[in-house]
Simulated assay, not measured.
Amino acid sequence: MKINEMIRELRIKKGFTQEQLASLLGVSAPAVNKWEKAASYPDITLLPALARVLDTDLNTLLSFKNEPTREEIGDFLNKLAVDAAENGAEHAFRMGMDKVHEYPSCHLLVLNIAVTLKGILGMYAKEEHPAFKGEIEKLYERAAKSTDEQIRDRANSLLILKYIDRKEYEKAEELLKQLPEEAGSMMDKRQMQVRLYMKQKQWKEAANILERKLMTKLNEIQSALLDSMIIALEEGRDTDAEEIAEISRQTAGLFGLWRFGSYSAPLQLALARQDTGRCVEILKEMIPAVLEPWELDRSPLYRHMTDKKSSENFGETILPKLLSEFLDPGNKEFGFLQRNPEFQSLMKEWKSKTIS
């Protein structure tokens, strides 16, 4: 609200006529009339007295406002979308820019209006609007100067995507360097780097990032499946636990993970149930799998991860440690197994192989 509107609203709220307000301030009634019509403004020396008479503060009188809250921003964005549907993209664009001019330093508002307007132009605009698109990019650039890391990183991410689409690869690369390695936001730095490499036809570099990303996600998935299986057991959902263990086993095979790891969830399930027969059955397959090299590059999913080839003697190194853990008298998890003759025979067989 402008100062002339604020003076009039507060005067009426106090029940003063223009003449009464003028008398209290020692000015003429025509002067007050001009203030309210925005034909002129109160002298700066009158402002403190005017605020006191109207029972307000200078910030309110001068329409100085705090930045809008996230809830207020969300409400405005909803109104913007409704306006676009009812009045068209051009009208909504002007409405959005008016709000930006009202709060020019609120970077959260600026960024969200820019994103919303981009969507509105794509959905409701009847023709191309290069000028509007240019204004939206300027809003991204303004938000990219924010001191808030999340706002700045998101704005930079949106600019990167624009630069990539326009083949301005050097600009995109420069901004990519400014993003944190782990964005922790909706924008994935690695995925944007992949897009940049693919646009530049740098297929090996793009594939290398994707393969490493896939491997990281698979490790997270397997860990989550194992924990989910344990929770299912604790909650008495035995059938669910069995299905989750099987999903984990199949995932390892489907995505070319080390065969040894595919037995982890089934073994944990059998140990939790103290199912001696099933434990021995799994260990008969699991122990030999330790000695199988994990040759990632044989899978079409990891052709470019040549530096991740498994060492041939890796299994030979960890097998003795694995057997020691199984046979450790203090290992309560395997205590029930250690008394089983078939288990003892299996351990003896493999221990003799490691010694020889």
Rank of each mutant, 00 (worst) to 15 (best):
E137W: 13
S223N: 12
F326Q: 09
I244R: 01
R8T: 08
A289Q: 07
S299P: 02
F326E: 04
M95F: 13
R195G: 14
R259P: 02
K34T: 04
Y124I: 00
A224K: 08
G26D: 07
A155I: 04
Q250E: 12
M95V: 07
A172N: 01
L158I: 15
L24T: 07
L80G: 01
K2H: 10
H129W: 10
R339N: 08
R259L: 07
E67Y: 13
A272F: 09
R166D: 12
A114N: 02
P300I: 00
P288E: 03
M192P: 04
I355F: 05
V32I: 14
T56S: 07
W350G: 00
K199Y: 06
G253A: 04
L196P: 10
V110G: 00
L25M: 10
E102L: 11
E137D: 15
K217H: 05
S352Y: 05
A114G: 01
S352H: 09
Q250P: 02
R94G: 11
F93I: 07
F260S: 03
D238F: 06
D297I: 15
K167V: 05
N4P: 03
L291G: 02
A241V: 02
L267T: 00
L291P: 03
S264A: 13
L54V: 00
M6V: 14
K204E: 13
D43S: 01
A207R: 15
L196T: 09
Y197I: 03
F93Y: 04
E71K: 14
V32M: 06
M1L: 10
K2I: 11
S345H: 12
V115C: 06
L196I: 12
L47F: 01
L346K: 09
L179K: 13
F336P: 07
H304Q: 14
A252R: 01
F343S: 04
S262W: 01
R52S: 14
Y41N: 06
C106V: 02
S28I: 05
S63V: 10
K99D: 00
P180L: 14
K145I: 05
L346M: 09
I282G: 09
L50V: 00
D165S: 13
T354P: 02
E135G: 01
K14S: 02
D240L: 14
L46G: 05
L58E: 03
T239Q: 13
S28Q: 09
N59D: 15
E220R: 09
T60D: 09
L283Q: 07
L196G: 11
E235F: 08
A31C: 10
L226N: 12
D55M: 07
M6K: 13
T17A: 09
R339H: 04
Q268Y: 12
F76W: 06
K201R: 14
H107L: 06
I230E: 13
K321Q: 06
K199Q: 09
G26K: 08
K204P: 03
